[in-house]
């Protein structure tokens, strides 16, 4: 299934040989470049511009005029840095959890189920199919499963893992669980794609060269699956850091609020476009810096 190989986000393959003839590639490039310019570069530019706007003096709420008011950034950050930091912390924990949960899944599908194509297909479908049940619907399902009057809370209270008035929803724990849950397939698929390419003879060679299964995993399997792991962590971390559905549905709006929630609220509730834009720019810049540093350290720059 190349859908999955594609999601592997790697798949760059070797750089093409010098075989460009004429200007054929320009016609292939043009529509995409124009589209991404109009609907990505220019909007990001608009976002940058908006982040420096100031309110129209004496104007109504939501009216702004162009300016170069850098103070917007200072104000936005000093007011909302806890949510920003929390977003990255939550996203990092969720990414690690996804890796811990998703790696065994990918390993079982790719290595253990190898050769049994029907079983492999079924397991893969089970990973992908949740996409089609709206993720909002699934998050709300979690909310109701973990609700105070739900069975899970009752059971945990019964075995005293949770105090009698303890709850699961409206906690940071619930938000991180929701993030982990929602982005798990984005970890499983790329890891699967790189493990699937793993030649089983390499594992036998590892064993043949006196490596225990654990050592074989550490020295052969894991390094070879690294492109998938890097791709997967990016595909989980990036959307998780910007997500606000989980924190608004499963959180409590005070000490679980994430930056996405703030941006959304600034835009739609307060009509404070400059602050919302400034926070968006900061979020984007921070993620790009993290991603660039991470990709460089992971040594898989050809991933891009």
């Amino acid at each position: 299934m190349s859908l999955l190989a594609g999601l592997g986000a790697g798949g760059g393959g070797p750089a093409p040989k010098e075989r460009a003839r004429g200007a054929g590639h320009r016609w292939l490039l043009a529509p995409g470049l124009v589209y991404l310019t109009v609907f990505f570069i220019v909007p990001v530019g608009a976002l940058l511009a908006t982040s420096l706007y100031v309110p129209v003096p004496g104007g109504e709420l939501g009216q702004y005029q162009p300016a170069l008011h850098w103070q917007n950034y200072v104000d936005a950050l000093s007011q909302f840095w806890p949510q920003l930091v929390r977003s990255f912390v939550f996203a990092a924990i969720a990414t690690l959890a996804c890796l811990a949960i998703g790696y065994p899944m990918a390993y079982v599908i790719a290595v253990r189920a190898r050769g049994r194509s029907l079983l492999q297909g079924l397991l893969l479908v089970l990973v992908i199919a949740p996409f089609f049940t709206s993720f909002i619907l699934r998050t709300i399902a979690w909310k109701q499963i973990l609700a105070d009057e739900g069975p899970v809370v009752a059971a945990l209270r019964f075995v005293h893992l949770l105090p009698p008035d303890g709850r699961l929803t409206a906690t940071a724990f619930a938000v991180v669980c929701g993030l982990t849950y929602n982005f798990l397939p984005f970890m499983v698929l790329p890891v699967y794609a790189s493990l699937e390419r793993l030649d089983p003879r390499m594992l036998e060679a590892g064993a043949d060269l006196y490596a225990s299964p654990v050592t074989t995993f550490r020295t052969v399997t894991w390094p070879l699956s690294l492109p998938g792991v890097v791709g997967g962590t990016l595909l989980v971390f990036i959307p998780a850091a910007g997500d606000y559905v989980n924190s608004s549905l499963l959180g409590n709006n005070t000490n679980t609020a994430m930056i996405g929630q703030v941006i959304d609220a600034r835009f739609f509730k307060v009509l404070d476009y400059p602050t919302a834009s400034a926070l968006s720019v900061v979020l984007m810049a921070a993620i790009l810096l993290l991603v660039a540093g991470y990709v460089r350290r992971a040594g898989t720059e050809d991933l891009l």
Binding site: L47, A49, P239, G242, I263, S277, S280, L288
Partner: peptide, 13 residues
């Protein structure tokens, strides 16, 4: 590699 909230906000802007 851009969070959806940023993409959404940029387009809306």
């Amino acid at each position: 590699s851009t969070p959806e909230v940023v993409l959404g906000a940029a387009l809306l802007a």
